Amino acid sequence: MKYLAAYLLLNAAGTTPNAENVKAVLSSVGIDAEEEKVAAVLSSLEGKTVEEFIAEGNEKLASVPTSSGAAASSGAAAGASGEAAAEEAAEEEAEESDDEMGFGLFD
């Protein structure tokens, strides 16, 4: 990620992103750049514009499943053990209530 960030910073500054420039950006913030990783980032971005690269990333993000399936399955599990959940909620209420003790956090 840091190698990509250095590449994008150089591109935004109007400087040609190459291995030496990427290493210079990273070393300016105290990061020792690994030659293999710099070469991998530069080779994967070779021949592409930043706009094309961002469009590819957006397409990949669009194919990532959302968490709505996980919420539905946890809701079904909670329905199956509703009695246990009610007991836990009652215990949490008892633990959270400091007003009954006669003092509060800022008294």
Rank of each mutant, 00 (worst) to 15 (best):
K2D: 13
L26S: 08
S43N: 10
S74H: 06
E51V: 08
S81G: 08
D107P: 15
K2E: 12
V64G: 10
L8E: 09
L10D: 00
A85S: 11
G75W: 00
N21Y: 01
N11A: 08
S74E: 09
E36Y: 03
E34L: 01
L8D: 13
A76H: 05
A90I: 09
V41M: 04
A94R: 15
A78I: 05
K23D: 09
T16P: 03
S43Y: 03
A84H: 13
A55L: 12
A19D: 14
M101C: 08
E56G: 02
E93A: 13
K37V: 12
L45M: 13
L61S: 14
K60P: 09
M1P: 14
T66A: 03
E100N: 04
D98F: 13
A80V: 05
S27E: 05
D32E: 11
G30A: 06
S63P: 09
V50R: 06
G57Q: 04
E52Q: 15
A78C: 05
A72T: 03
V38C: 02
A55F: 12
E88G: 01
K2S: 07
T16E: 09
T49S: 11
G30I: 05
D107I: 07
L105C: 06
N11R: 03
I31S: 04
L45F: 15
A90L: 07
V22Q: 02
A90G: 00
E34K: 00
G75K: 07
D99A: 13
A84Y: 13
G14K: 07
S73G: 01
G57A: 09
G69E: 10
A78H: 05
V50P: 10
L4N: 12
S63E: 15
E51I: 01
L42W: 07
A94S: 13
E87W: 12
E91N: 09
N11P: 01
N18D: 14
E46M: 08
G79S: 14
E20I: 05
E95C: 08
A5S: 06
E46K: 15
V25S: 02
L10E: 02
G104E: 10
E100G: 08
S27P: 01
E34C: 00
E52C: 01
D107Q: 09
D98M: 14
M101H: 13
F103G: 02
K48V: 01
N18Q: 11
L105R: 11
A94K: 15
K48P: 03
F53S: 14
L61G: 10
A94F: 13
A90K: 14
L8I: 13
E36S: 09
A24V: 02
T49M: 00
G104H: 08
Y3M: 10
S74D: 03
A76E: 07
K2C: 03
S97N: 12
E34N: 02
G47S: 02
F53W: 15
N11G: 01
A70L: 02
S27V: 03
D32T: 12
A94E: 14
E100R: 06
L9A: 05
A13F: 02
A89S: 11
P17F: 01
S68R: 00
A6W: 10
K60Y: 08
